[in-house]
Write a protein that binds this DNA or RNA. Sequence first.
DNA 1: TTGGGG
Length: 431
Amino acid sequence: MSRRRRIDYKLLLLRDAHSCIRHKVNIIAIVLEFGPPKKSNGTDFCCILRLIDETHYKSGITVNVFTANADSLPCISAAGDIIHLCGVTLNTHLGEVNVVFYKNSSFALYKGKSDDGDFVPYQAYSKIFLRDEDKLRIVSLRKWLVDFHIPEDSSGFPMLKEIKEGHSNLACKLEPTMPRDLVCSFPTVGSILRIFFELPTRKDHLHALQVGTWVKFVNIRLSVCTGLWYGVFNSYTKLRYTTNEDRHIIERQRLYEERISLQSGRMPFGTIPQSIDSLSESLRITKVHADHVQHFTLMDVLTHSEVTARFNCVVRVVAAMPYQAEKLCFPAGGVYRMKLTLEDPTARIHAAVVGADGETLFDGYPGIENVRRKMNRLLGVTERGDGIVLKDYPRNPPWVSVCIISFYSDKTNLWRYRKFRVCDTKIVGDP
DNA sequence: TTGGGG
């Protein structure tokens, strides 16, 4: 029996899959994409992979892996790794061939980038014997992966500044979340998209996401929440193999380097090339006391090495609290007191406008009607000629220059109590 | 069984 099995053993090239429908086969191939583990609608857990080899690399072939518990599912450490599948079944679905891994199948995972002689799997399910021909196959796939650039469909990977709501693919660099030391390792120029994980994610399933390296997400959900863009990594999202030599990545890296080398590189893209400095006076909404100094992005502000500092930024004022002129003009205590929500493509912050800074912003106390018009300009509220606000007209906050000062409100923890205020900024030139 | 370029 064992002798017979050895004779029967054959590795299937992916191009021949269509001729073996309903057969059990053995495959060694490269993991082009992999999704997160999830509960199936039956009794098992499931994980979906897409495989390629040198005979079938344009779209590849889907594998549905089912195991009784989540820990047994393949936990791919990087797209581009190699999977050895034994006793998997070929099926068709809507005219496409796919592979099903049932519980009596077995798999082993090998690093895609490794020495020729490295045949130690980093994960295996069920006993799997590695024959000489399997080793040769692994070596040749590793070589192919290095020498060959997988032709990438150029469509469907928008830049962050082009994204629309819904499902999309993204090619972007990955950055970590929150604590200050990590926030400081973010890039501070360009469009920054926060990505959240909708599923309970196991840490070891995210090994493939490495800080500072390029990553391709397939089918990530993009949505706007309270005016900010988010990516949502969900059960349909996959990570796709990519390299620094991929032409999408080369192009994006080039654009990024070009951008940071520009004088205006830290200005939001929407304001370039007609930068705030060159806007004609009539279009300018604010004037900052010390113009013509270096511009900072809001991420620069957040990641600045000192708690207290002063920054000139180009932002949109997306909200104000309060925003009604009558509340601003008769505030408790007789001084201005307002909180603004400022946004640029890199981040969003809240900044206060209090007392004398408010007097600078509104040019003293010019009366309810003037304050109302100034606020409408700042917030991008559309008015009719007679000053009546067009209610159903979408608000579109313009890009404005502001001066932001950072400070702390409590000495016990400077960074935790770091706050921002807008100062030396004046709303100018009524329309 | 389940899921499958959603």
